[in-house]
Design a binder for these strands. Structure first.
Lengths: 345, 345
DNA sequence: AACCAAAATGAGCACGTGAACATTTGACAA
DNA sequence: TTGTCAAATGTTCACGTGCTCATTTTGGTT
């Protein structure tokens, strides 16, 4: 049976030297076989492979890394894995890592308290990583003054540009600019905005995108409604909007821009519950395209972020040669379904 | 400025020897300071810390691991990160890792094709990990004959027991046993089961739990309906069920057990669309408790898995001292809301 | 001042590997 | 056979650390 000798040497697995001894060759020849280098006789190679099999040889990572200086791994520090958007980004990172034969070494920063980038960086750098990606959901208290670890390329997932690190994020601001213009172009000059919670950076940028776009179009923004990302909070806001619509008048909104799809769903439910039709009476758009498969007959017009693209770019920036500092905003795509009606003249 | 010397030595960061030279002490003293060992004068410690700061010293992981033999990291091989359940499990693993000051080194196995456990294990073992967790969504072709890498404790996330590895999973079978009994106890002896796709292991166990429980209660199982986890597929099945109910007769079902919440949502939508009331006409239960915050006024009675618990147990088994092989099934909790009516007597 | 235990510090080894360089082997032409 | 050259294989070194053991310094007691 293979692996029987695994415990003979203090729990460590066999070394190349032991394989060499068993195969009757030098350690360097074993190294050549392991790394698939040329100039090894087929007969020798077979003997070495047999010895490796017998001893259950596993090349010692530390030895190789110590010599070579690279770990073929990048660090990823996550603040909150649960958020769906982070998941897709993670997937993009993992996929890019796989393409480069890299592993991803992940640590999670604790609980709900905001954390300093410096803490994350310090904890990450003591791991075997060649570069690192720091995910920043809420505002880090030391964002401005943060200095990345020397010698380890550091990428921050953030809408804010950083003076010393490349930053990458979906274009949250641009997304709401796009959606707001979309509604305006369809004749909805009186719309309501349902924002996310105040402490969320995404929420802040989405709101700014909406507000600024209206400003540029010289349209007055109605008072903003605030939810907490949940469908229930969207429903509550939807009830208020329904009341406004039913009251009629020139101030009655014809469209709702919800800062995420769940709240949009809640808004729609409230409107329909009040006897209003979407989109005949009110148009509704969401953001994230998060309802696929979750809801029957999903018809919500929304906006899809290229989160996998964000992950891929982040990975590549983290292992990249270039030392230039960039602030990358990845654009999003409009997904037109059937909750917006064109009401132009 | 700190870190200015980072590139002086071929891109590698400063070594303890260089710090020692700058501080005018031996390398061993630096090591003592770094590892917080006693018997170092405060004055010396300060001098060393200053030198570390100046050179931007980062203890070389490979050197330490080479000497110490432990990486303080476990490997996690994921087949499909996107699936929501995997996410919560990942979170449980990350949290347990944080408590033990471990990192998690993750690799993703490719695309949609089923992969051999041996492949995953081989790829993982060349990384700096002290143990590994293999996530297995679909059936691995080599499950039975798989032999874990010697010297690296290997845990498989699987409902099936394995002869050589500890396995852990939520009790998919027991979950449907519980829900089926729950419906029976509420007087629903005529229920429909909406299964997930055939190639899913979870789906298979959920179906078996339902079928066996009915068998034990000597209740005939009506033909099973098959969806694909999506709300739309649930809607399609819901339409069929609605037709059965409206047709009436002794064979008309009074309850539906859907193998996940999305399909349950689809079923409910179809029933209500057909003019039926849930739960007055038909009771519906789902599995996963996945709708929280996603849907307004979530009232679905469902079953919650302790996925974080699964992750935590998996981590602990992967770093555990015990070499015993176990097959752990983590129990789930019923979440009673308001889509089931008691129709006894 | 002399001595001694304890504390602080230093020296050297070993970990397992890849690369550069040195040596041996083997094939083939003269 | 001999000489030549390339292919195959072996030797040595360096990577950065933690540990064991040896040495020096310190602070207090005789």
């Amino acid at each position: 049976m293979e692996g029987m000798d695994q415990q003979t040497r203090n729990g460590r697995s066999a070394s190349a030297a032991e394989v060499a001894a068993l195969a009757g060759v030098s350690r360097q020849t074993v190294s050549r076989v392991v790394n698939g280098m040329p100039n090894v006789t087929e007969k020798t190679r077979k003997r070495v492979l047999a010895a490796m099999e017998e001893l259950g040889f596993r090349p010692n990572f530390a030895g190789a890394a110590l010599r070579g200086g690279s770990y073929r791994s990048i660090g990823l520090c996550m603040y909150n894995i649960t958020r769906v958007g982070n998941l897709a980004t993670l997937e993009g990172i993992m996929q890019a890592a796989r393409e480069h034969d890299f592993a991803v070494t992940m640590i999670e920063m604790g609980g709900d308290k905001p954390y300093a980038l410096a803490d994350a960086s310090r904890r990450m750098v003591e791991r075997p990583v060649d570069g690192m990606i720091l995910n920043m959901n809420r505002m880090a208290p030391d964002f401005e003054e943060f200095v990345p670890q020397p010698g380890v390329r550091t990428v921050i997932l953030s809408m804010y540009a950083h003076p010393r690190c490349t930053t990458i994020d979906s274009d949250q601001y641009g997304s709401c600019e796009l959606l707001t213009n979309y509604l305006l172009e369809h004749g909805h000059s009186n719309m309501r905005f349902v924002a996310g919670p105040e402490n969320s950076i995404s929420s802040r940028f989405r709101e700014a995108g909406w507000r600024d776009t209206l400003g540029r179009a010289h349209v007055d923004a109605a008072p903003m409604l605030r939810g907490d990302w949940s469908a229930d909070s969207g429903y509550a806001m939807g009830e208020r909007i329904a009341a406004e619509v039913l009251a009629g008048g020139s101030q009655a909104p014809t469209a709702v821009l919800a800062a995420n799809d769940q709240m949009a769903l809640g808004v729609i439910a409230a409107l329909e519950n009040a006897g209003l039709s979407v989109p005949d009476d009110v148009s509704v758009v969401g953001i994230d395209d998060a309802l696929e498969g979750l809801v029957p007959h999903n018809r919500l017009t929304t906006l899809r972020f290229d989160l996998r693209g964000v992950g891929k770019l982040a990975f590549e920036a983290a292992i990249g040669e270039s030392s230039s500092i960039e602030a990358i905003h990845v654009p999003s795509t409009l997904v037109e379904r059937s909750t917006v009606r064109d009401i132009r003249g």
